[in-house]
Design a binder for these strands. Sequence first.
DNA 1: TTTTACCCTGACAGAAACTGTCAGTAGTGT
DNA 2: ACACTACTGACAGTTTCTGTCAGGGTAAAA
Lengths: 233, 233
Amino acid sequence: MRTQRLFQLLDKLRAAKYPLAANALAESLNVSERTIYRDIKSLQQMGAPIRGESGLGYQIEKGYFLPPLHFNRDELDALVLGLRMLASQADPQLADAAASVQAKVAVSLPEHSQDALARTPLLAPPSQSEKAQSNRRYMQKIRHAIADRKKLIVTYKDISQAQTKRTLHPLGLAVFSDIWVLTCYCELRNSFRNFRLDRLLTVHTTEEKFSFEPSKEFHAFLKTVPNGNEQQK
Amino acid sequence: MRTQRLFQLLDKLRAAKYPLAANALAESLNVSERTIYRDIKSLQQMGAPIRGESGLGYQIEKGYFLPPLHFNRDELDALVLGLRMLASQADPQLADAAASVQAKVAVSLPEHSQDALARTPLLAPPSQSEKAQSNRRYMQKIRHAIADRKKLIVTYKDISQAQTKRTLHPLGLAVFSDIWVLTCYCELRNSFRNFRLDRLLTVHTTEEKFSFEPSKEFHAFLKTVPNGNEQQK
DNA sequence: TTTTACCCTGACAGAAACTGTCAGTAGTGT
DNA sequence: ACACTACTGACAGTTTCTGTCAGGGTAAAA
């Protein structure tokens, strides 16, 4: 538990460009400042080159304990543009995560590649269109419900403008350029249903978890789709 | 406390030439065997390549130094979905690169995260629409020209269906959900011009390189765009 | 086949470590 | 002087960790 957090702390420090203050770290790791101070001390005692400056925050000597990752130019392009495309459409939390991935990968790269990362001339400007906004609206809630296997109660406006309210097992999300579709198992109809995120009127996460039933899982749904949509292996 | 011991354990395994049995490790670290089993399990979950064989003991793959990257669930989601979104629209070479990034990251991840990667229930099915196809058509050529700073000669069909042929300095690409736009400096007009990839009729890469002129570079173009499109912080 | 030498797991209660809170000191830059 | 931050000690409550016990496996030697 603590060990995990120590590694997370290291990761955050490595990824950060500027000094990080204890209170910021405390918040992002969901512990008190006091604990951060204790953790930092532990890391220092274990040899990590972390220095803290009053009024500033903590910094770690760069290059400390890094895994050797080697990406060629195409791979860097793919990584950066992929993350940018995601960030341009996803909810803020996921967009932050994308930035954090890029930061973590960046520090584990040779220096000349680090510049290349940020300067990649492949952009995906954040979309502020109405559709994009409504996609984002419940995205985070839905992602979490999928991950936690919590039932959702949603009201949905279908193509004919009719509103329906259902209890669902959220299974997965699929993106078709700018249309996001939530795949669910519908309790009422006893079958798989898909919902466009921009047509969801309300989404309520229940505390009730749905249990594992092979025939009602995402992979079962995918098998019903002719064009094997499973992305690469 | 425990963290310390985990490192000691790692050290002992690395230093040992022959397999070490749990009871020997227990004695040298002054804990019970049970604790050793638990510690080993923790290390394995953190990605350490330790294998235990009945009747023998534990050995670690040599050359292993440190549990490397750590991504949380959101970060893994961002990485995977970002790469999938990219792969759904990009040219085959870039799509392959995306797969390769995922593979490289996967191997540097703790065991339990590796599964999570492939099973992420966030998809972006490859788009086979006409528009997607025409986006892909010259994408690779263009990416390389941007990277190599080689002039392009293109014929383009603009909104009014008029065809034009130009010599361009390709500077960057921008993605707006399913529309890909190539930003260029146009030699003829002496200004920046944008071209939709799906409106390009022909693209020819010349061997002539364009030289560096700050006012004709991508970052100069970006400054002319009000909505600071530079991604991430 | 039996024995030996190990790996590995679950349960549980007591021990130890960790944590938040509070209260206070000290350094650094504006 | 003020704002902001690193740091430390003490203490009680909570969580995690540990050892013990009681099994179940596997692979090779005897």
